[in-house]
Amino acid sequence: MPLTNQLRDDILASVPSLRAFAISLSGNGDRADDLVQETLLRALANIDSFQPGSNLPAWLFTILRNLFRSDYRKRRREVEDADGGYAKTLKTQPSQNAHLEFEEFRAALEKLPQDQREALILVGASGFSYEDAAAICGCAVGTIKSRVNRARSKLSALLYVEGADDFGPDDTVRAVIGGNG
């Protein structure tokens, strides 16, 4: 459909959640905003292929997710800017304990396999149905459900069992668990 004022407003209204999705995926605020910009340009260039009445946020999220995937493949060997990116995007500085907890959570989230992380975010934070999340990721609904469950189990293990470092595995155990990496 052509770009109407209404559609333009709807696209703008999706920007905040697109940014949140991009930051959750990439863990880096600057890179996330580039991803959002690229998504908007693609969306506007391909606006004719958007079906009126269909789910605009899901369409935009699909574009962003595909861009992230191709971008990620390109960059996976580059050095990650692991710290600082997310913290910079915060409007208010959390108190120190809350900040630590927040960092711990973010670090755990980044340890999830990408498939599981995106499924968990789409369903657990963006509020998409399993069906929409499956459409965005191009997979079956059952696959999304199982990815979300595995993501939750893994986060729970990372944060609430392994995360208690005072009785965490020592180096020898880590070496065994981690294989010869």
Partner: peptide, 13 residues
């Protein structure tokens, strides 16, 4: 925690 992290960005408009 997931929603808190996400919504913190959403609220930036």
């Amino acid at each position: 925690q997931l929603r808190a992290m996400y919504d913190d960005v959403v609220r930036q408009g």
